[in-house]
Design a protein around this nucleic acid. Structure first.
Lengths: 162, 162
DNA sequence: GATGAAACTGCTCCAAG
DNA sequence: CTTGGAGCAGTTTCATC
């Protein structure tokens, strides 16, 4: 997926990240373009898959007091089939927001959300009993959300200008 | 922010998370409602702040080979002023996508993105030299993205039905 | 790239049931 | 909650420069 973009494309992406429901005529105005070429650029950005879709941002604060937990996971063995089984199980769990494989001593790092610690523990027990290859885990409870970017940073978007 | 929602509101949120640019008449059709009450519900969801906004989802894969890193950070001291200084510094860094304060032995967990490992190291050096209270850090490089949810899971949305 | 226009679709509000 | 409709705004395509 190698695409060449100019400053205006990047500006459009930056605006659309934050204001996904902006009208196309207003977007054109903001990037100093008339609606027609702006519309063509947008079509292109969507067609090549740079824009995967649009979505509403739901306020986490409105969901009440949820517990957010990072979980380090270590597997029983490092066979390719064991990795695959664990990853498949994790992807099927609603509570798991993210799962990353890491280099070094930790096999996986998971971001898990649950209504309470008890619910989190039930999730862990379910995983342990599911014969999914989970040998050991470490729990780190989030006590404060310091930063949680909801958009690709400007500096990274600039790297598309090649 | 205590709001009482019914199944239709939740269904609307679920749809809007994935299809933020859906037309309001189509949304009404999908939840078996006529446009007018659907429009009023949507107004309400936005007004109470449950929907913070809308945004385009940009494909990470299109940004080329970026390096994603989790960084554990330990501070020199645990004075409230030191926490505040570090958190402010972190929020100002474009590379830091997320920063969480954790209970237990780890002060902070950061998710950092950079074009390369070298760029990441430059970021760390900058933080260390910025006299921001960072005493020790551990680096965990992401080798695989197993799961990265882009929406609040259904089960959590259900908890709004109180 | 810009512009203007035409045909269409969707939006927002209003009235009435 | 429903339907229907009016007036307006935004979308998409087209032809022209």
């Amino acid at each position: 997926m190698r695409v060449k973009l100019d400053d205006r494309d990047i500006q459009m992406l930056s605006i659309l990240q934050k204001e996904g429901r902006i009208t196309k005529t207003e977007l054109a105005r903001r990037v100093n373009l008339s609606p027609t070429p702006c519309w063509e650029r947008l079509q292109h950005l969507e067609k090549v898959g740079l824009i995967e879709g649009y979505g509403a941002r739901i306020a986490w604060s409105a969901l009440g007091s949820q517990t957010l937990v990072f979980m380090e996971a270590e597997l029983n063995s490092h066979l390719a089939s064991d990795f695959a089984r664990f990853e498949k199980a994790v992807q099927a769990q609603d509570e798991v927001l993210e799962c990353w494989a890491l280099g070094g001593g930790i096999d996986y790092l998971l971001k898990v959300v649950a209504p309470s610690i008890d619910d989190y523990q039930r999730f862990v027990d379910r995983m342990l009993n599911a014969d999914v290859g989970l040998r050991r885990y470490y729990t780190y409870i989030v006590t404060k959300r310091v930063k949680d970017a909801d958009a690709v940073p400007e500096t990274l978007l600039q790297s598309l200008k090649s």
